[in-house]
Design a protein around this nucleic acid. Structure first.
Length: 438
DNA sequence: ACACAACATTCCATACGT
DNA sequence: ACGTATGGAATGTTGTGT
């Protein structure tokens, strides 16, 4: 991706009034989503402040570099990231990126200030995806029993909590509210988890010994396709995915998984599976939870795998507690899974980072190695890395919130969708703050 | 002149190294 | 325990638009 190209044209909000006699406007970044982010910022500006030398503080060129840096930034899987939702060294990374990209220096403090402003002004939903950590939010509780398991009393940080471009007269919208609205927008069934897959025939690139930086995939002639695999986050052939979901509950539960598969919105398959209690590794068991696994729509998985276009399918998943009374069927957790092909342009980011390696090198198995295929890691680090998970993981990421204060972390619900199901684990681990407890 | 937006600065909480 | 580095929220300052 290249935000550098700027053309001199006209634009409605004229920055020249403050800084320059030329009217400038960015040429559209090649990637549609990035363009949307950039446009939302650019068009949302009402004025441009200037430096003493008359230049704009944040001209489009620098703004573009800022966004690009924001996308390229991959947070460490540090305690700070997990517990606080803060991103160590992000501002410095972006600052350096801006300098490398434009030759102009903006301090980390300036970057932080600008990011704060972008959050406050809500420059588009996509930008919030970039700015906000992704955190699946449980649905409102349906029953008293569910209450026991779904503690979610936290406030949310403003990062993800800003109302989506609401006008000033709009009532405050909590992140939970806005998130749930997004849930509804995406089908009303929990967070939407996108599973990045590769087109058939792209699997070879995983074997490229140098990490694939230079190899091209036959199916993606314009870019190194599967070589675009980041070191950890990895789109991959769907058949490589181990369709197992793992969840952590703070208590022993009796529950079922319910799946509904839709093709173009039409229900084509319904299935129910049981949860199996498994042993939770000590290093994952800091919450004293109980690990459950369940196969992911086992009766239909092979059909999805063999489908010409798996992205046509949508799978909704509910974990429903079995109750011995007549109180109904509390839904402890739900989500929607969709498949998608990665954006080719992301390949450039990887190559620019120069750090990618075959994902297999980064395999670790925080949950259950037996459920993992070689390319997948359910570790949080694996999910943060590669691309910016906030960009990649979720068009539904706006549906995710973030705890406002570390002190509330112990109350955070955790859902640990581990196992071989990568994007499920992605969504979960992105939060590890992120785990949902059912 | 005033309101507002853009940007800078300050303050605070936290992580981390010594 | 202390100092340092950092991100982010809060607050302050300044430029822009009307």
């Amino acid at each position: 991706m290249d935000f550098d190209a700027m053309t001199v044209t006209s634009m409605s909000s004229d920055p020249s009034s403050s800084s320059s006699s030329t009217e400038i406007s960015p040429s559209p970044p090649p990637d549609i989503e990035k363009q949307e982010v950039f446009d939302s910022i650019f068009k949302g500006r009402k004025s441009w402040k200037t430096l003493k030398n008359g230049e704009m503080v944040w001209p489009p060129k620098l703004e573009a570099a800022l966004i690009e840096g924001l996308e390229l930034y991959v947070p460490d899987d540090s305690r700070e990231t997990r517990m606080l939702g803060r991103f160590p060294m992000r501002n410095r990374f972006i600052s350096d990126h801006i300098y490398n990209k434009t030759g102009e220096r903006r301090t980390p403090k300036q970057v932080g200030s600008r990011l704060q402003q972008l959050r406050d002004t809500c420059a588009g939903r996509k930008l919030h995806v970039l700015l906000a950590p992704c955190k699946p939010i449980p649905r409102p509780r349906r029953g008293a029993r569910a209450h026991d398991s779904f503690k979610y009393t936290n406030e949310f940080r403003s990062d993800s909590g800003s109302p989506p471009c609401s006008d000033a007269s709009s009532p405050p919208v909590t992140p939970t509210d806005s998130a749930f609205t997004d849930h509804q927008r995406f089908g009303g069934v929990g967070p939407v988890i996108f599973i990045d897959i590769l087109p058939t025939g792209c699997s070879q690139a995983y074997d490229v010994p140098d990490g694939g930086a230079s190899a091209a995939c036959s199916c993606c002639p314009s870019s190194p396709c599967s070589n675009t695999l980041g070191p950890r986050h990895a789109p991959r052939p769907i058949q490589w995915i181990d369709p197992t979901i793992t969840l952590v509950s703070p208590r022993i539960i009796a529950a079922q998984s319910r799946y509904v598969v839709r093709l173009h919105g039409t229900v084509v398959f319904v299935e129910q599976t049981s949860l199996t209690l498994k042993e939770l590794p000590e290093d994952q068991n800091d919450s004293g939870g109980f690990l459950y696994s369940t196969p992911f729509v086992p009766g239909f998985w092979s059909t999805i795998v063999q489908a010409p276009d798996p992205t046509e399918y949508t799978v909704t998943h509910e974990v429903v507690e079995d109750l011995d009374d007549d109180c109904g069927f509390p839904v402890l957790f739900n989500s929607t899974y969709r498949f998608r092909y990665p954006v080719q342009d992301l390949t450039i980011q990887y190559s620019q980072q120069g750090s990618w390696k075959p994902v297999v090198e980064h395999m670790n198995t925080p949950v259950d190695s037996s459920t993992l295929l070689p390319l997948e890691s359910a570790s949080s680090s694996s999910l943060f890395a590669g691309l910016n998970p906030y960009t990649n993981a979720v068009d539904a990421s706006a549906a995710y919130g973030w705890p406002s204060h570390p002190s509330s972390a112990t109350e955070m619900p955790m859902f640990y969708a581990g196992g071989g199901f990568d994007m499920a684990s992605a969504a979960a681990h992105m939060n590890d703050p992120a785990r949902y407890v059912i």
